[in-house]
Design a protein around this nucleic acid. Structure first.
Length: 330
DNA sequence: TCCCCTTTCGTCTACGGACC
DNA sequence: GGTCCGTAGACGAAAGGGGA
């Protein structure tokens, strides 16, 4: 492999002059600059980024721990995180949350010596929080948060749960089932709490029969839906805790011969781009400003890496209803 | 076999010398 | 005094060498 030493020898200068040409060209005479760049071209020289990071104590790389890509929300956030990072000169190493055991993922990430971590995988009481703090690598949580605080950006999940439930109640639905992911994740917990609050305010009981959790995979959602539909008085509406779950549910309902919303209403949360698709027109709850949480989080992470703010960045965004075609008055 | 010390890799940069 | 360029040391991990 060609090094800056080889370039220096070829151009008849010192290695530090080659380094200057790359990093501080204004300190180099025009003729020397030309000689060195010509040598770089001739030898097809590419700077060694590992050696560079050794000196600079910065790797120009960020680790992203994303939720599963079967949820289009994470496709959108991953895309915007990767694109924005690239604009700012960072590479992104993408990892995926592993339901049940994230420790191996975290260990991988911490071994990589990245400049920052952006994650949507943390649980409310996750022990990894302490390890992340100890590692001194800046990190930000998006769409999730930890009980001990830290930097995070999220939508107001409780409010989102309230808006979705209030909408279904306003359409005269009373038999409403909430279907979401594990309540150890603040996203689902918040959306469930909002649901529960509004249901109790209306005097409607919330228990195992109208609150179902899944691992968010299509197969598990199918199993849960079968349980929901098997009861004598089936629900007239489903509050899916994410648009991804809502889209799976609609697909499964159609497969079983149900019409949405004529037989059963479905509402989601997140307002992902796919929810606006003409074949879905999914009624959903999303942020008031149609912003991407992933993008907001990566902007803040890069700010944290460069400026190390004294206080934690805690941003919670308000939501509104996006009333489309999958809910109906009964 | 184990432990400790040294060397190696490629790069950046503080410092200082040479030159005009 | 300003500009340009070279020297030397530092960075972290891994491999190598030598001694116990």
């Amino acid at each position: 492999m060609v090094s800056s030493k080889d370039v220096a020898k070829f151009a008849g200068v010192s290695q530090s002059t080659v380094s200057r040409v790359l990093n501080n060209p204004r300190l180099v005479d025009a003729k020397t600059f030309e000689k060195v760049t010509k040598a770089m071209k001739e030898l097809n020289y590419r700077p060694n980024s590992i050696a560079r990071s050794l000196v600079k104590q910065q790797t120009q790389s960020i680790a992203l721990i994303s939720g599963p890509l079967h949820n289009p929300f994470f496709v959108e956030t991953t895309t915007s995180i990767v694109n924005y990072s690239k604009e700012r000169g960072y590479n992104v190493n993408v990892h995926f949350e592993n339901f049940g055991d994230n420790m191996a993922v975290y260990q991988d990430v911490l071994n990589q010596k990245v400049d920052g971590i952006i994650l949507s995988s943390i649980l409310y009481e996750d022990p990894i929080y302490e390890e992340l703090i100890k590692s001194e690598v800046p990190f930000i949580m998006f769409n999730r948060k930890h009980k001990k605080n830290g930097h995070y950006v999220e939508m107001d999940n409780v409010q989102a749960g309230r808006i979705a439930t209030e909408h279904l109640l306003s359409l005269n639905h009373r038999k409403i089932v909430w279907i979401g992911g594990p309540l150890s994740m603040t996203t689902f917990k918040g959306r469930f709490d909002g649901f529960k609050e509004v249901m109790l305010e209306k005097g409607i009981e919330v228990s195992d029969h109208n609150c179902k959790t899944t691992d968010t995979s299509k197969s598990d959602i199918k199993k849960v839906l079968q349980e929901v539909l098997a009861v004598k008085e089936r629900p007239t509406a489903i509050f899916a805790a994410t648009d991804s779950i809502a889209i799976y549910l609609i697909d499964l309902l159609i497969e079983k011969g149900y019409r949405v919303p004529d037989d059963i209403s479905v509402i989601g949360v997140d307002n992902i781009a796919l929810s606006q698709h003409n074949s879905f027109q999914l009624t959903t709850v999303g942020m008031e400003e149609e912003k991407d949480l992933g993008r907001i989080a990566i902007e803040h992470l890069i700010e944290i890496i460069n400026e190390a703010p004294a206080d934690f960045i805690n941003k919670t965004y308000k939501n509104k209803l996006y009333n489309r075609s999958t809910t109906k008055k009964i």
